[in-house]
Design a protein around this nucleic acid. Sequence first.
DNA 1: ATGAAAGCGCTAACAA
DNA 2: TTGTTAGCGCTTTCAT
Lengths: 335, 335
Amino acid sequence: MVRARVTIRDVAAKAGVSRQTISRVINGSKMVNPETSARVQAVIAALGYQPHAIARSMARGRTQTLACIAPNLLDYTFASVINGAEAAVRARGYFLMSTSAPDVETFASLVADLTGGGYVDGLLVINPFADERHRYLPTNTPTVLIGARPRAEAADSVALDDVAAGRMATEHLLALGHRTIAMVTGPHVEDCTQDRLAGYRMALEAAGLPLLPELIVEGDWSPQSGYDGLWTLFSRQQSFTALFAQNDLMAIGALRAAHDCGRKVPGELSVIGVDDIPLAAHVEPPLTTLRQDFAALGREAVRLLFDVMADASKQAEHVRQRPELVMRASAGCLS
Amino acid sequence: MVRARVTIRDVAAKAGVSRQTISRVINGSKMVNPETSARVQAVIAALGYQPHAIARSMARGRTQTLACIAPNLLDYTFASVINGAEAAVRARGYFLMSTSAPDVETFASLVADLTGGGYVDGLLVINPFADERHRYLPTNTPTVLIGARPRAEAADSVALDDVAAGRMATEHLLALGHRTIAMVTGPHVEDCTQDRLAGYRMALEAAGLPLLPELIVEGDWSPQSGYDGLWTLFSRQQSFTALFAQNDLMAIGALRAAHDCGRKVPGELSVIGVDDIPLAAHVEPPLTTLRQDFAALGREAVRLLFDVMADASKQAEHVRQRPELVMRASAGCLS
DNA sequence: ATGAAAGCGCTAACAA
DNA sequence: TTGTTAGCGCTTTCAT
């Protein structure tokens, strides 16, 4: 069953050359006689030899492997970023392993194990949280932050321009004639929540409109929280004609809440989301939203990471991606 | 910037003991004097020493690491399985790395690299495809298949009981009085598509109803394909009063198609899906569906994997999970 | 309870 | 172009 591993020694012996020559062949060195190479290749195939990646990492001091740590792997936005990153990593001949860190402790130990343990040459960290996680970033391994505000001196970062997203969403509703715009936010502990809120505030200010705290409720990105959030808003004194949900899932939950209490969308209530998840176009009514290009974010993060790996002393970069307004049916003119 | 790694030698030198003693301490061996241990611990802390996982793997011949290969990381069902598996793996002190294999070539090379390269002690493979992928499973590494029919002699497997899912969905619609039940399937190349279709056929047969090919269209699990699929069905001669979408996303797409052409759900058309994704309860009308417990599937797969790792000669097991009917508003009595 | 020696499978540096 | 000599950092015998 478990036949002993074929090592570089076995190949060397059978091919009648030194191990070093085998090493040269499997690494595509030019300094090897074509005939020797051919013979070695044949022996490799005959023996079914496969280099031991762990041993190679050990000897080289590098692993050709990167890791991506996300808060979870379920969230479509995180998964999309990873998807984009994975393709970019593979295109460069590296391997990307993904894992999740549901809490701060897991995060800290994962970072320590992966980087301190010599598992990876670089790290991608998706971290929307404005919390102590940032204290546990690695010090000796190139790292790029995704979805976080610029923070760690050493780490590069990429993220959506959340302030712009908040501003654009609000401005769009304002342009449609709305003057009372409610908002369901993400968790306040997240950078993007705070930034989208800031954008909302800026747009209102620019329009000379007051920011009414009664029009704001906190959600958790889930459809259910969008549903509950809209009901909460309805229960308050302050009326409103539009809703800015800080992501599409909550917007979809809100759509159903509006339906359940008989408020027509967009006739009586306009709704706008953020993300443009695939389902956004398939709910009733189709959702107007601000699109993020998650895959591009992932690719960009990988580009930065390779830059840092190539030159550890390079100046940190902070890339912000501009959202794109996608107009569908859920937001309309104030009638 | 990049200070040299602190190795077990440094610790040994500073603590005035041999490397072996350090090794014993970090591995919690009982055969070490408490005082010595305490002193070593202190030195470890002082030096900020962290064991090199790669070196340890090299020496031990095991990595304490498992990998999960999925067709992609975007699909909510795959991500949920991984989520359940990850928790179970961590509970046992192992690390789970996840990665995706979009095509057969990537799959084959990933399997070879991960297992042949000595990266992992065991492998989880999420593979719904009834294709050549099964030929590239590892021969020397414990492996558990997820979402596939029992196939490889050596590999254990876990999956939803897809035949039961197809049967139950169809039976539910039959019980509501429907006699013409259309279906949007997943890609025919997938095991679960074929099995759900088989269940549909069995239920119709048991009810003495014919299986009409005009009532079946193939989708690709996406909302768009559900949308298009329902339009295609509408365009055909054969009328029907109910639709069985083989997953929730397609069911949601179909819901919108029904809306767009003015067919009331469930008044004029009943719709049932499979999966019970979080959004299923939040579309209009809320979706009746067959729930899968993805996390449980992942946990079960991990259990099997550890069994195989403990005893490579153990008889392969094939676990099928029974779906659960979740009744909501999208499927109703035939009026 | 501790240490010495050998080696995991490979590559880097130097010779030849 | 090829081979030799040392390791990479750790764990595993086997002594002591």
